[in-house]
Amino acid sequence: MTIPAFGLGTFRLKDDVVIASVKTALELGYRAVDTAQIYDNEAAVGQAIEESGVGRDELFLTTKIWIENLGKDQLIPSLKESLRKLRTPYVDMTLIHWPSPNNAVSVEEFMQALLEAKSEGLTRHIGVSNFNIDLMQKAIDTVGAENIATNQIELSPYLQNRKVVEWAQEQGIHITSYMTLAYGKALKDEVISQIALKHNATPAQVILAWAMQLGYAVIPSSTKRENLQSNLQAQAVLLDTEDMTTIAALDCNDRLVSPEGLAPEWD
């Protein structure tokens, strides 16, 4: 199973804004879209996909189960509701968005329910998001590493999360990077700007290319057509060893997403 290296994120985009973003992205050639129950935009994303005219079999669609729906009696009904909103009989990948706070629902319970959703054909692949090493191990113990397609984690030049990445990759678990541009902060970095100048590229293209060259999938979002187009072209940027080493040195464990009461103990 190959997760597309490049896709469209929809975090914080709603209603007409997300409809326009998704339709423009699909028109430009994007074929992977990432959403989540908590984004409150699944219905709008589903509408955009339907109106785009792009065939369902051409798309890789991901959604994520919110913490209130992790119980074995809630997970599958909530996913069916997501499918109804997305106007599709299945999604390509379903992730656990965050681990259950205070282990209110055990990893074993929700991973078994997620695997059942897969066996019912509601989702082609399953995975996790925001999991540390201990939680990934528990997930592996429950469903096997072969059933965990990805761990979607915050990952940028300033937060390279190497411990989690290396451990996941050793188990054969793919990494999806979110917040890759560090909320735009990394776009202003002088080091990144110099590399961009060298390659006649934009800072965003350099950062996305860096992540993809490390083997991660990226899901940047944008509401502007020119940025959606430009981000897509990051796939053509090839950084050299010196560039990769230079960006590696920017790591400073600068985490931007760690909601209190929700985030696990990070590695």
Rank of each mutant, 00 (worst) to 15 (best):
E170W: 05
Q171W: 08
Q171A: 11
I173A: 00
I175N: 02
I175V: 11
T176P: 02
T176M: 08
S177L: 10
S177T: 12
Y178G: 06
T180V: 12
L181A: 05
A182N: 10
G184D: 08
G184M: 12
G184V: 12
A186V: 03
A186E: 03
L187A: 10
D189L: 12
V191T: 14
I192Q: 01
S193T: 10
S193D: 06
L197D: 13
L197S: 14
K198F: 08
K198V: 08
H199N: 10
H199K: 11
N200G: 15
N200W: 09
A201C: 09
A204H: 11
L208S: 00
A209K: 06
A211D: 11
G215L: 02
Y216M: 13
V218Y: 01
P220S: 13
S222I: 09
K224R: 15
K224L: 07
K224I: 03
R225Q: 09
E226N: 10
Q229P: 01
N231I: 01
L232P: 05
A234L: 10
A236S: 15
V237C: 07
L238C: 03
T241S: 15
D243W: 03
D243K: 01
D243R: 07
M244W: 04
M244Q: 04
M244N: 05
T245S: 15
T246V: 08
T246I: 04
I247N: 01
A248E: 15
